[in-house]
Simulated scan of single mutants.
Amino acid sequence: MSYILGYDPDTLREKVDVRRCRDRLDEIGEQRSLPSMLERVWLLKVLDRLDDALALSEESVRVARMGGTRKDLLRARILHATILQYRGAFAAAEQELTTCATEAEGQEWNAIAAFAYQHRGKTFYDAGDFSLARADFKRALFLRQEAGTPDDQLESTLLAIDAADRRRATAPLAG
């Protein structure tokens, strides 16, 4: 059962069951496994506890670097970058996500590359660059399709492309 109830069509942020997220956070407690740490980071992020999420995401990157696989490290770095994005550090988030996407594509880890592009697109979207956001969402969609992602799981990417198109159409022209 998912904690995500849907996605906000304007912000592209997850709509979550707050009570279930809090309950799960309490249930996990201070477990030190990398999967538990990454889940806690995500829960803290969607509960808008960004300072706690940032500290734990930095720690999870260190743990992944010391004892995880390269895929684990990429996942931890991508999640860390999403915390930076939520905090408004768009340039830092974009740089980290670009590095992660490039490495994942080089290894032909399409699902991880798609995850990085989706979040880099969200970073561009939050920063107001809807053309670059759309390009990243389209790349994420292609990679997810290549990875065999079921159609019902492509919803967030399709929603993001639509939102970027709407924003591009209504954004004032630079002049």
Rank of each mutant, 00 (worst) to 15 (best):
S2I: 04
Y3E: 02
I4R: 11
I4P: 07
L5E: 14
L5H: 08
Y7T: 04
D8R: 02
D10H: 12
T11I: 03
T11D: 03
K15P: 01
V16M: 09
V18T: 10
R20F: 03
R20L: 06
C21V: 12
R22L: 12
D23A: 15
D23G: 10
L25T: 04
D26N: 11
D26F: 08
D26M: 09
E30A: 12
E30Y: 10
R32A: 13
L34F: 00
L34W: 00
P35L: 05
M37A: 11
M37I: 10
L38K: 08
L38T: 06
L38D: 07
L38R: 09
R40M: 06
R40F: 02
L44Y: 11
K45I: 06
K45D: 13
K45H: 14
V46I: 12
D51T: 01
D52Q: 14
A53T: 07
L56Y: 05
S57R: 02
S57F: 07
S57Y: 05
E58Q: 14
E58K: 13
E59V: 05
S60E: 06
V61L: 00
R62P: 02
V63T: 11
V63G: 02
A64M: 02
A64W: 01
R65Q: 08
R65E: 08
G67N: 07
G67E: 10
R70N: 14
R70C: 09
K71Y: 13
L73S: 05
L74Y: 08
R75M: 12
R75N: 13
A76Q: 04
I78S: 01
I78Y: 04
L79R: 13
L79D: 10
L79T: 07
A81N: 09
I83K: 00
I83N: 00
I83S: 01
I83P: 01
L84Y: 07
Q85Y: 10
Y86E: 11
G88I: 07
A89K: 15
F90P: 02
A91W: 05
A91E: 08
A91I: 08
A92N: 10
A92D: 14
E94H: 06
Q95F: 04
Q95R: 09
T98K: 11
A101D: 02
A101P: 00
A101C: 03
T102P: 05
T102E: 15
E105F: 04
Q107N: 14
W109V: 00
W109F: 02
A111E: 14
I112Q: 00
I112H: 00
A113V: 04
A116T: 01
R120K: 13
G121L: 01
K122L: 10
K122N: 08
T123R: 05
T123E: 07
F130Y: 15
S131H: 15
A133F: 04
A133L: 06
R134K: 12
R134M: 09
A135Q: 15
D136V: 07
F137D: 03
F137H: 03
F137E: 01
K138T: 15
L141F: 14
F142G: 11
F142A: 15
L143H: 03
A147H: 00
A147T: 08
G148V: 12
D151I: 03
D151P: 00
D152S: 15
Q153D: 12
L154T: 00
S156D: 09
T157Q: 09
T157N: 10
L158T: 13
L158V: 15
L159M: 15
I161S: 08
D162N: 15
D162Q: 15
A163P: 05
D165Y: 11
R166A: 11
A169Y: 07
G175M: 09
